[in-house]
Amino acid sequence: MGCIEEMKYEVLLSRVTFKECREFIRDHYKEFHTVKPGYKIFDSYIIGVPPILIGVDDSHVVFPYTKPCHGTFLLRIEGPQEIARLRAGKA
């Protein structure tokens, strides 16, 4: 894990709760998908409180990312392959 931090990402929200992440994604994106804790994205597992939402914004995915010492961040990263996987409903 940890390769997400080496990718080109945009931080949309910092040090927030999963509830705040859910609400932000529901309010800002028409397309979003619900995944379980432990869903793998960009070769990292999502650590979080269900239901976990992942938003789709053009060719980008918007998802929560938790670091134990720093809290939860809502990130936006380009990922057409991840979007295709979400749409196909693959875990």
Partner: peptide, 15 residues
């Protein structure tokens, strides 16, 4: 002791 810790608890509970 913070929300991140609860995230780990939820994930462990789920998997």
């Amino acid at each position: 002791h913070n929300d991140a810790g609860l995230s780990y608890a939820a994930t462990v509970g789920s998997v």
